[in-house]
Design a protein around this nucleic acid. Sequence first.
DNA 1: CCTTGACCTTCCCCTTACTGGAACCCCCAT
DNA 2: ATGGGGGTTCCAGTAAGGGGAAGGTCAAGG
Lengths: 128, 128
Amino acid sequence: MNIGTVAERSGLTAKTIRYYEDIGLVKPLRDANGYRAFQDKELHKLIFLSRARALGFTIEDCRSLLALYEDETRASADVKRIAKEQLMQIEQKVAALGAMHDTLSHLVKECAGDDRPDCPILEGLGRG
Amino acid sequence: MNIGTVAERSGLTAKTIRYYEDIGLVKPLRDANGYRAFQDKELHKLIFLSRARALGFTIEDCRSLLALYEDETRASADVKRIAKEQLMQIEQKVAALGAMHDTLSHLVKECAGDDRPDCPILEGLGRG
DNA sequence: CCTTGACCTTCCCCTTACTGGAACCCCCAT
DNA sequence: ATGGGGGTTCCAGTAAGGGGAAGGTCAAGG
């Protein structure tokens, strides 16, 4: 499989896949013409990466998860620990965004939004 | 006021303030010795920036908001439009994080988290 | 056989919003 | 004069790729 094919099947872009090779996440073989030749195993790893990234894992998380994914003797506890840390980070982000949302929606609600220069949003931001 | 003082009062770091000068958000005067000399107006702009960034506005949003902040004749509608866009972006991020959270917490719940190699999290990520 | 267009390669710069560090200058107190 | 705690500039790096140039390759059509 060429890079275009695995890109389509994994949902990643060719650029991203080349980047993942650069940083050592995948190691495709090469054809005589220099084209990357992906085998099923590499494709599965890319699909794995695509999903893990979509769930918010960092590249370094993915590197750890991939090592566990490839290690048939891993303990599920190792995976669960990484996943739970990621869950907590997601929860923290949601909480932070929620606080932003509350403050901002309050300001927006107060603002007339007309032609007058009077603006509670700017006042709220500038108030010492 | 030197940069250390405004850093403390605005809640930004000196590094960040120098960066904001670099990209043209503030334009402090200079003392004879080359030190930045901040006046109250610049301090207020930095406080404004600190709050707006904390609410998730991008630097470019802040640039627009700051221009409106300084324009005594601005229409509140302009500010409200920017703020509402930001609100929508926050809502989208919350929704995306919520979806991640649901999927991941489901996987975590399924996982025994013991010494056995059997791991539903990895299975969930690798499943085609 | 030649060309055209789609695909592939490497390489380098760009992005966001800073942060860290090196090397150096300045001011005040001892 | 010296030590410490300011300040200054500039260079490099971060996460995770995206954009685009310059060029090699392949398959189909005329």
